[in-house]
Design a protein around this nucleic acid. Sequence first.
DNA 1: GAATATAAGGAGTTGCGACTCCGTTTACAA
DNA 2: TTGTAAACGGAGTCGCAACTCCTTATATTC
Lengths: 187, 187
Amino acid sequence: MRPLRADARDNRERILTAAEDVFGRSPNASTDEVAKLAEVGIATVFRHFPTKVELLEAVLTQRLERLRDRALELADSDDAGPAFFGFFSQVVAESASKLAIAEALSASGTVAGDEAKAAGQGMREAFGALLDRAQQAGAVRRDAAFPEVYALLVGASRGATATGLESDARDRMLALLYDGLRAGAGS
Amino acid sequence: MRPLRADARDNRERILTAAEDVFGRSPNASTDEVAKLAEVGIATVFRHFPTKVELLEAVLTQRLERLRDRALELADSDDAGPAFFGFFSQVVAESASKLAIAEALSASGTVAGDEAKAAGQGMREAFGALLDRAQQAGAVRRDAAFPEVYALLVGASRGATATGLESDARDRMLALLYDGLRAGAGS
DNA sequence: GAATATAAGGAGTTGCGACTCCGTTTACAA
DNA sequence: TTGTAAACGGAGTCGCAACTCCTTATATTC
């Protein structure tokens, strides 16, 4: 398959950006709205993404890959504790303003499309690596296993978004959470 | 306005039950599905709930009132700590199997209908009272304010549901959370 | 600067789901 | 029991949103 024509590549990009914006605001917006915002005909949207689900998955995949990349960058930092907590905070802070990230996070467990599934897997692995390193470094208690920590990440994102938490309340919420996650807190 | 005829009252009940079931499984199911499950004509559904939104709000209201009642019962118990944590655990455990409760919780902040709004308010107040008493009793740290604790309740519910947490992982997640909430944990 | 494959666009078409109309049935009262 | 207001049911209607067809425009290649 040959490379896309320049205008096509361009439009594809614009559509993805528009979709991220539109679906970020209201997850079941119509495809027309995306086309309008991207300043493109409806047919063009469907040529690039034959089905609405595929468009949604493309947006999702993009978000998940971005999160994974950030986690991978942080994994190189030499301070494992701050890397873990910093990533956690960043994810939660962003989902407060961008509804779609929270959706994406929770959808990452139960998604049909292969690409999106792989992206979710990659992101969870990168986050798992951050967790491991933080535990090795003694910053996070060892008895906190991945599933529950990941559930807390997803949950904190959704909870903050859903209740419309102000940023200072969000920080206090995270502080409570982190106290529970730190080594030596519990039994 | 006169009392409903016996069959009408009956059908109304059946419709609500069916709706709770159907929307609990998939929140954007069609009204037809509800009618089918309730073994009732579509017109009957719309006679009782003139609009789909009103039906959804009725389900929501019912759930919220049930939660409030449980919180009020527990508020009478003499042990404030277990009352608070017990309620918290119960809510999270139920949303794991009943998607709609989690939806209801997060929607309770941003709902149009007056009845549903009042139910949400009532439930939050009852939960707030549990929190207060637990703090008075020294079971929960005093610097945990209502907004962030409520966000954690909503978040834990959604996180557990969204990631499909097994019940033992769910308990471990809650244990982490509770360690953070307990008095003396942090600064 | 033509020729041509590739892409754009917007007016359809189709299907589904919310909601209505009206003839039939049924609870309740006298 | 019978009269009647109340309620039922399901075959419509209507609108919206996903997806297609086909004519027109434009990158790219020589």
